[in-house]
Amino acid sequence: MADKKKTGLLASIGDSQIWKSIFRTGVPVTRRQRMMGVLNSVFLHLHPVRLPKHAVKLKYTWCMGGLSFFLFLVLTISGILLMFYYRPTVEYAYTDIMDLSEQVPLGIMREIHRWGAHAMVIAVWLHMFRVFMTGSYKPPREFNWAVGVIMLFLTLLLSFTGYLLPWDQLAIWAITVGANMARATPFLGHEGPGASLLAIGDINLVSMTSDIRFALLGGRFVGEGALLRFYVLHCVGLPFIIAILMAVHFWRVRKDGGISTPV
């Protein structure tokens, strides 16, 4: 064909059957293609197709919600890699971490995971700070704010449960300090106000081996049971819950009218 002039590599890739089978809309050049590209992608369709102009300004959004989500993904991936090397038993936990830092070539997954977790806690706080300062919690977004508060709490719990896993001095004593709070829970902890009221005759229903701290630690102190419980909560339980809430959160951002706009 005469008019088939110089087609670049990129353009011919964009024209190929493989590319078109993956990205139905082709290379996003025209306005229509760009809109369809967002609509047709399972990932990008978290976003609307068009946004009010202030919604893409960093000065307004601080990008902290997005970064919180991104850090969650980074932590999930690095966490999965760490799970290949780590056994949650008192016998192996600490030595597995030692091996991880000394034997695994180019191993910075533990660093990524640890510093990324700190960064996520800060990012979540800052996201909340921004949402407050722009008044974005106000109707109709009040329920989504509440969902966000629960996720903030879950983020801290995720970090807290992960704190124990290296099984070093820092870990068990930080968790001991934290878990000792639980025994003072009113009615549910054996040193909590009102716990002694829950008794049948002389038998206390809430004792050192049946209170909420025992349930949390799977024992009377931070030991084998606590390590396994925290591991399961950290790797499966809490991420499962927070992932569901994230879906709700993102969905509601869209359903409540998208990012907040001046009213």
Binding site: R110, L156, Y163, W167, L170, I172, A174, T176, F221
Partner: peptide, 23 residues
């Protein structure tokens, strides 16, 4: 590098024993 202290020792409590920083 991510710090790693000595192996957990339930009979030796550090002074001060601190909760994670966000708590």
């Amino acid at each position: 590098p991510a710090p790693l202290e000595e192996a957990a020792n339930p009979s030796l409590s550090p002074n001060p024993a601190k909760a994670p920083w966000y708590f």
